[in-house]
């Protein structure tokens, strides 16, 4: 582990140095395996947050009753060694070589693989229109808040639990009406990536289908409830 960066009180980015690393694509993930002294093993998948060619970094949210994430967020430190497998995935990836506008829909830490896509777009100087619709509980839970402003994509936040004073943005869970207001028109045949909890992903994907999106445009990745 080459460095750690606190993103929010519950979320940390882990920069990794992997011997023989062959590189990755934006949207891929890694499996991380921890082995206890008694031999008990636990393994979880974490999305890669960094753009291809920009080093390897995972962003991990601590789930309080999890077996792996509390260790990674609270205890793991620079110089520690982790057992990883990957990069994994060829479906939930965006390489930046398609002209269609891109809609990213994130629930909480589901933003991580989408951030890799946004960083990739900025890194390669792509002018493909990209818009992120990002649902967080509170303003302090927004991961990558400052960097998102600087990346040059449209960002639409919705804060579902608590909003700062004077908040004029959305303040509810993502639903069909919200997506109807902010998603690219179906006529533009956008490429869509949705990542979050199972319920979040199902709601977002079903809403987009109702808005006339074709199922083949929508790629989804569901996060498990175990960390």
């Amino acid at each position: 582990m080459r460095e750690t960066v606190a993103e929010t009180p519950r979320v940390k980015t882990l920069g990794l140095e992997v011997p023989g690393w062959s590189g990755h694509r934006a949207g891929q993930h890694l499996d991380v395996r921890l082995t206890a002294e008694d031999g008990y093993q636990a393994q979880r998948s974490y999305s890669i947050a960094s753009a291809p060619g920009d080093g390897l970094a995972l962003t991990v949210e601590r789930l309080d009753d999890g077996e792996v994430s509390p260790y990674l967020v609270d205890e793991a430190a620079k110089g520690d060694e982790l057992e990883v497998r990957g990069p994994i995935g060829g479906y939930f990836v965006w390489d930046g070589d398609e002209p269609e506008p891109v809609l990213l829909v994130a629930g909480g830490s589901g933003v991580v693989p989408l951030m890799a896509m946004a960083r990739h777009r900025a890194r390669i100087g792509s002018e493909t229109p990209m818009r992120l619709v990002y649902s967080s509980r509170t303003w302090d839970d927004v991961i990558y808040r400052d960097e998102l402003e600087a990346l040059g994509l449209d960002v639409v936040h919705t804060l579902t639990r608590e909003q700062p004073p004077g908040w004029t943005g959305y303040a509810r869970r993502i639903d069909r009406e919200l997506l109807a207001e902010v998603a690219w028109p179906a006529g533009e045949r956008p490429r869509v990536y949705v990542c979050g909890s199972t319920r979040f992903v199902d709601t977002a994907a079903d809403s987009l289908l109702e808005l006339g999106y074709d199922a083949s445009w929508i790629r989804t990745e569901r996060f498990g409830a175990t960390g």
Binding site: H29, D31, Q43, S45, R85, G86, I88, G89, Y91, F92, S197, T198, R199, T220, E221, R222, F223, G224, A225
Partner: peptide, 16 residues
């Protein structure tokens, strides 16, 4: 229904 993931979650074991 909330425990349902998708095939991305088995990419690692299938790769192995």
């Amino acid at each position: 229904a909330e425990l349902r993931l998708d095939g991305n979650a088995v990419g690692g074991i299938m790769l192995e």
